[in-house]
């Protein structure tokens, strides 16, 4: 158990934070530059995963399992989001025969 603690502590907290923010920024890039709806969904999943990792790490440092409980809530919300979003993508493909989101410009002002 002591060795496990040392293993976790051998990676400083700052590196976790920097890593998570880089992953989050990659997700932002994916949402901004891609036009494929499925890739945009994967980028959103990447952002959620970055936040999840940071929640888990801070809960370990705090010695409190509440952070991990919230990771489960975020995972459940991500699963629901993907289910509904992919159903919407399938409907969009049936109606427009494309999943390029630039086709969906009818509500554009």
């Amino acid at each position: 158990m002591e060795q496990l603690t040392q293993t976790i502590q051998s990676v400083p907290l700052n590196h976790y934070i920097l890593f998570s923010s880089i992953i989050f920024a990659i997700g932002v890039i994916g949402v901004l530059i891609r036009r494929n709806a499925i890739v945009i969904f994967m980028s959103i999943e990447l952002m959620l995963n970055a936040v999840n990792l940071l929640l888990a790490v801070f809960s370990v440092y705090h010695g409190d399992p509440a952070g991990q409980v919230f990771v489960f809530f975020v995972m459940a919300l991500a699963a629901a989001e993907v289910a509904v979003g992919l159903a919407i993508i399938v409907m969009v493909y049936r109606n427009t025969h494309s999943i390029d989101i630039n086709v969906l410009n009818r509500l554009k002002w």
């Binding site: 496990l4 999943e45 888990a56 809960s59 995972m75 699963a79 993907v82 992919l86 993508i89």
Partner: peptide
């Protein structure tokens, strides 16, 4: 590594087993 082993298992079960298969289905249907 963050000693959240249960979350690691849940990550594999939910994301790899659920979300990714759902994405492959959406890709195949689209």
């Amino acid at each position: 590594f963050a000693s959240a082993d249960f979350i690691a298992i849940a990550q594999i079960v939910i994301y790899v087993g659920g979300v990714l298969v759902l994405m492959l289905f959406a890709f195949l249907l689209s």
